[in-house]
Design a protein around this nucleic acid. Sequence first.
DNA 1: GACCCGAAGTGTTACGTATAACGTCCCTCT
DNA 2: AGAGGGACGTTATACGTAACACTTCGGGTC
Lengths: 338, 338
Amino acid sequence: MARSSTRPTSRDVALAAGVSQAAVSLVLGDKWRGRVSETTAERVRTAARDLGYRPNLAARHLRLGRTRTVLLVVPALTTEFFAGVYTGAARVAAEHGFGVVLYPSPEGIGPARDPFASAQAALDGVIASSMAADALTAIRGDQLPLVMLDSDPTGSLGAATVNLDIADGVRQVAAHLLGLGHRRILHLAADVPSWTFDVRAKALAAHMAAVPGTEIRTARAPISIDGALTATETALTAPGPRPTAVVCDDDKLAAGAYKALRRLGLRIPDDISVTGLDDLALATALDPELTTVRLDAELFGERGMQALLAVLDGRRPDGGDIPVELVVRGSTAPPRAP
Amino acid sequence: MARSSTRPTSRDVALAAGVSQAAVSLVLGDKWRGRVSETTAERVRTAARDLGYRPNLAARHLRLGRTRTVLLVVPALTTEFFAGVYTGAARVAAEHGFGVVLYPSPEGIGPARDPFASAQAALDGVIASSMAADALTAIRGDQLPLVMLDSDPTGSLGAATVNLDIADGVRQVAAHLLGLGHRRILHLAADVPSWTFDVRAKALAAHMAAVPGTEIRTARAPISIDGALTATETALTAPGPRPTAVVCDDDKLAAGAYKALRRLGLRIPDDISVTGLDDLALATALDPELTTVRLDAELFGERGMQALLAVLDGRRPDGGDIPVELVVRGSTAPPRAP
DNA sequence: GACCCGAAGTGTTACGTATAACGTCCCTCT
DNA sequence: AGAGGGACGTTATACGTAACACTTCGGGTC
């Protein structure tokens, strides 16, 4: 009988089953066809079960050099978007026998340049979502296979990228508003240096410019309800003709815009239209419900993991942005006649 | 020169510095005072830096049997509450040289009974937040040190528990509403079997019962905006005198209640008061802003990690629930005269 | 001069696993 | 009858690290 004070090892199982440790490894590693008899294999399996044997992962990792674990780095967990990304990634990973460790990139915790000091797991690869470029260099320094989500495909240090077609989403928003008759737009932009927000600004400018007589005013705010509130209030109390619609970089900013508009006595959508981007639960909690762009976070995570698995396999990941969809709700309407 | 195709090991560093591997281990493990001269130590350090040496964690874990990594199991990442718990836990962990791996307990991914198959890291301990009891048995089977957050202190299989004083929060809500004059309450309860929600119901019942002439009606809803919407709508269109306030088990349910009340043509707080619990960003995005109970998620995570560190140290974790605070906003007011 | 002691290291081992290389039998083919 | 080859295993080894036990050497003590 093995000591109960410590976890049983494959050798304990071997002892119990009356075979060698190697046989245990073969049977439990499912590599025994033609090497061990069915009856012996069964004896090993029952012994393992009886002892409650669970392989020591550290030993396995040391031996194999691979961990079948990947790291998902996300900027924050303050919206359910990244929860969806994780869910999708973890599902695909599980289908391939991989595990996913989640690493919310800290703002105050430890050195952000070294995710691995904090998530001490040994890793086979990394998926980084919406990360700034300087964080990447540390990751690249480790030569780990890397997939970037929501990042500049041309500036990702050669790493594979997977993106949502956010530019198209913004185009759909612009087309929707232009179609309703809006010409003066306030762009409530996230005050965060990131490719994903640059894309929004560029796409909005490009599609508005196609129609003569349009005008974009830009307000910048940190991604928080209060930040968006003050930025919107300032922008709308500035002199000049008032915009008839507010295009927000994401739903959270839109929630702040709602508050600012209420405070200014403007009614949505009668006096002014508002759009968001993400389609969080928040979007339907607002009154009126928010017209926004739905992002399929789970699919995003799945595609990201598939890309990483491809890289680990030495294959080229398939390209192609993930389509997004405009969801029209109650926060947009034609502008009032001036 | 070591091969550049593979990561340098401590032996490579030893070779480069002209010392033994044991000396490298001593120096880099900071256990060399009185065993290695300062000049030699410095030579080892520069060699390690030049080669870009990073210790192999799998080997270290195998040797030491500990990983300085703990697992934080949370039910979901769909609210920022658990992001705060993680942040607090990770901060305390980092101060003690520990890392935290986050494991969102899946609903569809892999076997929920075996978190470790998915988060394949080897672990020193586990913090489980708001988990159902059956998930615990699997964890306990591994004999890992365990701390439970937000769980029944008397039924946690002997594990240490850390709790927010939610009962007191509910008491504050009840006192607030009773003080305003409310007597008929609708309790919008989460339709999830969990200690944390049982506590709410019991505390509410207990404190309402202290005042004669009070009445609690209960509606159960899954924790989603839509679920809360339909549950609230049904409850309020039932026969009998209408409640004058809705006490919600959390802010998300409150958001659903808002929608139901709007749909029924009831105005908040003039026709009916609403309270939440959590104080998410959502609470201030609602119109009117939600009266709710503020939970200090980060402190919760900190205390949880401190408790786990205590257990790992063989000490007894300090007890004491974390106080919570009622935040009165615009969603509560005295009931209208009948 | 014999003795001890601390400084400064080195040699060796073990952690638990996966697998390459190596033995037996025993059955079958020629 | 001898060779060949599957079926069924076992033995031995390496992964990279930390730590125990040991060696060497110069100087101080009585």
